[in-house]
Write a protein that binds this DNA or RNA. Sequence first.
DNA 1: TCGGTAAGCTGACGGCATGACAGGACAAGT
DNA 2: ACTTGTCCTGTCATGCCGTCAGCTTACCGA
Lengths: 215, 215
Amino acid sequence: MTGQVRTVDGRVAGRRGQATRQKLLDCLSEMLSSSPYRDVKVIDVARKAGTSPATFYQYFPDVEGAVLEIAEQMAVEGAGLTDVLAERSWVGKSGWQTAQELVDGFLDFWRKNDAILRVVDLGAAEGDKRFYKIRMKILNSVTNSLTDTVKDLQAKGKVDKDVSPAAMAGSLVAMLAAVASHQKGFQSWGVKQAELKPNLALLVHLGITGKKPTK
Amino acid sequence: MTGQVRTVDGRVAGRRGQATRQKLLDCLSEMLSSSPYRDVKVIDVARKAGTSPATFYQYFPDVEGAVLEIAEQMAVEGAGLTDVLAERSWVGKSGWQTAQELVDGFLDFWRKNDAILRVVDLGAAEGDKRFYKIRMKILNSVTNSLTDTVKDLQAKGKVDKDVSPAAMAGSLVAMLAAVASHQKGFQSWGVKQAELKPNLALLVHLGITGKKPTK
DNA sequence: TCGGTAAGCTGACGGCATGACAGGACAAGT
DNA sequence: ACTTGTCCTGTCATGCCGTCAGCTTACCGA
């Protein structure tokens, strides 16, 4: 792997250095939650961390670079989203439960990391490959798992042949991500979480199996 | 309505002024397509428009303000997204066609305006009410129309009672918007537009009617 | 034709963020 | 106490921000 944490000018960071670095990342993370991405300045992050801008530039090339770092850390956690799907069945009652748990896991993860995910989404949409790769890392495990499920069901003749597994899985995952990042929007529009979740689960189930769930 | 276009300091803009203003908006729009939102500077927009930064500030409070203006213009067009749905049936073959045309319209509109929509999405996700309102304006017409359709089908007993029309419609629209804004991502991931569209249409049809379409 | 008036534009300026560097502070081992 | 390498910051040149006073241009009525 990357081995050691290094400063911009190539020195290896020691214990103290790593602590400072992490503190900067934490403060940046906090700032992203409280103010628009466009307005986050290096000087503010540094001040919040009780250090100077120069220190920031010792560890990161710019704000974007630091955000990438945070996103990378998050992506590692996010890979665990797929645990919910491991060895799970999509038939009968347990199929319905699988769908529900997937939705739950997604919404939770997004709510917990909404600020960074917003920025990652933007970067990916703007065509930045680094952000795009991270977004992949998070979504791919789930997408791949769902793709395989659809292929499986197709092989057994339970799903129409003209469904494209990858497109279907990708669309569903994109939907989950989108709804998750606009959760607040839904609420202020009069849709409660409690009714949102089952409807998402229903859509996921319909998309994967082609059938209504048995509850 | 708004009546007249005004400068920041209250003067009414004449013919020439409006032309300059529009030119600045056009240049900003172009810049948003070619460089990350975070890096778009007033001075660059002004230079591109062949004018000075001070002129920019005469017409807009800041970059964000100008973006809102562009978004507003786009939202007017976007309201036409709902035309596809007017008086359309969701039963039988025509139901399948309705779903397809909705998907088509959405993807086209998004591809045409992806740069501004990205920023609007970010602003909305960050909790900025002005951006959120614009996003609503674009999506609401479609969402409301779909919501009504689901309610209708429920009343006729064709859709389960425990589906929340608003949540379902909102989720589907969010999906369309999300997939649309990551169209390039899908492609570079090996999913072609040609297979993406029918799968989205299938999901929409499944979500609204609860049944597979008859093609 | 000729002011008068309002619209339209810009040079210039203080203020602040950026990003680079050199040098000082600090901890740990000898 | 001295050395060594890590760690932090003061400082500086550069460039963008956002504002103002003042100049130019267009329009209009007399």
